[in-house]
Design a binder for these strands. Structure first.
Lengths: 355, 355
DNA sequence: TTGTACGCGTTATCAG
DNA sequence: CTGATAACGCGTACAA
């Protein structure tokens, strides 16, 4: 009765209204509306459906979530959505989520382990169906302990967890081989005849940066080259600029690899402003292959960012979750463009000296 | 008792556990945990708090949402998160949301009115605390009817609605004056001595594009100049490229304004590849001032994208919502950089002819 | 100041 | 195949 009164107002119509309107029990109405494959007579089902559309019924997702102990949301924890690397990942997640009527929650940490943990906690409390952690690890961070604790809590609950980079927790990880990324890229440049190759590091302390640095070093030493030409860096434009400014003060390298496209842009433009011709004098390469790499005609390593997010989302909302110890590694490849070229014989002298 | 048994397992601890542990009623426990300003004796409050931390209690946000008829989430409906324009908006929202423990749900529509409505519906059913619609309007879209219906439903419910561009619905709107944006920019270029100015349009059918086009036309005609040099466009890089390719086949304009930075990048690089010197021969300007504009040294209109999102979020989760008919307009301004300059007297001839 | 009891809108478990 | 009814975990009148 109170229901009947409410139906006239702006109050939402509930399943009870539908049931009443269709002359069936709440249970029956639920069975047809909740999409379950439960045996209901075709006739009554039709009646319920009709009543639902008549009353323009929309299920209360929250009530449903309470009893199912699970919302139709999936959280993606990233560094910063304005960074195209993370934006692509988020897009991959969202595309999959949308297909199954899941909502995508975005959590910017600005690479703060504390914020990361705070969001982890919040998502758990929100009973997200899945949590995708895309930020890299800081092996030294004191917050790692709490992070692992949170991961354990997740494994006890029903929310599925996926890591997009190895975080040393019991959760499936989908990632790229960061060491291989720089190794392949470095080898590519060496194959082009470059000997004196500089490397602009990624963000300090991040395990991803560490591994990329290792890859560079390994490729150089295995070719008998000096791997010590390194510049402190980061993933943004500014670190690239700073490194390039330093390069301009000394003997130029044959080539420079930056740990990200953005940093490479910084290197590229600063070098050019300094009067250096790219790639005639110096070759430049980045990592990511983001949307603007093409604009700068930048040689780079293509990272499957979108696929990382998409696959993680599938594991999280799909029928087959990734096993807690499963790790899949997605392939990357060099995208040769105009900022790299064979080293000219005229400039080879310096290179030979360095080698 | 069943509770006591569960406490040992991985099952979550509930408020009842806390209450029992603190020897108080469920109500009392609720009153201290829910943060309400309800009179509770300091001693008992302390006991409850202690019990909560002892049991590492975390409130079930879904249960809370059910009774409050409101989740701690805010949905932001955008075109595409990999577009830095929308990413900045989303970041503005998220920053505010995080401060108050709200979760930010991101919804990519790819500018499809149908998808936009689908997300609108989903967010409503999810009982989002607020919904921010950032995509532009397609005045001709048949889905607009349903959109308005959804907006009405929102106004009847408790979820707050904010538009980031005028959508002709009963909801507060925070936006920029798109007409003024292009007018100011065009006037700036005219002030630099340019006469033959080309305009690369925004995405067809979008009201934002329409208004920007109007602004360009008005500024030109009020200066007694020909406003007919327009190129079909869009907000991406490719449309810019295509327009520039066309320009290269005919008499070059003095300057070109693109409806977005990305399009301007396309114009800029294509023109340069075509042997045109920027800005000596042609000045180029964009709209947005995104992160890469500085890299290209692009003159542009700075749009307060981040602030748009941040202010919308405040209206949505803050103490004072925007009135349904309130419209605030955030200021924009020209950022002069290196892709525009005074027109050289040598090139002035053509300009005079056109004027 | 504290406790009791009910309601939020669904789903799931039993009987019929 | 259908219908009562008990959870789900929390907030809040109302009563004490």
């Amino acid at each position: 009765m109170s229901r009947a009164r409410r139906s006239g107002t702006g109050g939402k119509v509930s399943l009870a209204d539908v049931a009443a309107c269709a002359n069936v029990s709440l249970a029956t109405a639920s069975r047809v509306m909740s999409g379950a494959t439960y045996p209901v007579a075709a006739a009554t089902r039709e009646r319920v459906l009709q009543a639902a559309t008549d009353l323009s019924y929309a299920p209360n997702l929250i009530a449903r979530a309470l009893v199912r102990r699970m919302t139709n949301t999936i959280g993606v924890v990233i560094g910063d959505i304005t960074d195209s690397y993370f934006a692509e990942i988020a897009r991959g997640v969202e595309d999959q989520a949308y297909r199954r009527d899941f909502l995508t929650i975005i959590c910017n940490t600005d690479r703060s382990p504390a914020v990361e943990n705070a969001y982890f906690r919040l998502l758990l409390d929100h009973h997200a169906a899945g949590i995708i952690i895309a930020g890299g690890a800081f092996p030294q961070a004191p917050e790692n302990e709490a992070f692992r604790e949170l991961a354990k809590e997740a494994s006890r609950s029903a929310t599925r967890l996926v890591m997009l980079t190895d975080r040393d927790v019991e959760a499936p990880v989908i990632s790229v081989d960061d060491r291989m990324v720089t190794m392949d890229l470095t080898r590519y440049l060496i194959g082009l005849g470059h000997r004196r190759i500089a490397y602009v590091e990624g963000l300090t302390g991040l395990s991803t940066s560490l591994r990329r640095g290792e890859g560079f070093a390994r490729a150089m030493t295995e070719a008998g080259l000096d791997a010590s030409l390194r510049y402190p860096g980061g993933f943004g434009i500014e670190p690239g600029r700073a490194a390039a400014a330093l390069m301009l003060r000394n003997e130029l390298p044959d080539a420079v690899i930056a740990a990200s496209d953005e940093a490479a842009f910084g290197v590229l433009t600063t070098l050019q402003q300094g009067g250096v011709e790219i790639p005639r004098q110096v070759s430049v390469a980045g990592i990511d292959d983001n949307r603007h790499a093409q604009l700068f005609n930048l040689t780079t390593m293509r990272l499957p960012t979108y696929d990382l997010g998409a696959m993680a989302a599938k594991w999280v909302i799909g029928d087959e979750p990734g096993a807690p110890d499963s790790r899949v590694t997605l392939p990357c490849r060099v995208i040769p463009r105009g900022t790299t070229s064979w080293i000219s014989t005229a400039d080879r002298k310096g290179a030979l000296r360095a080698g």
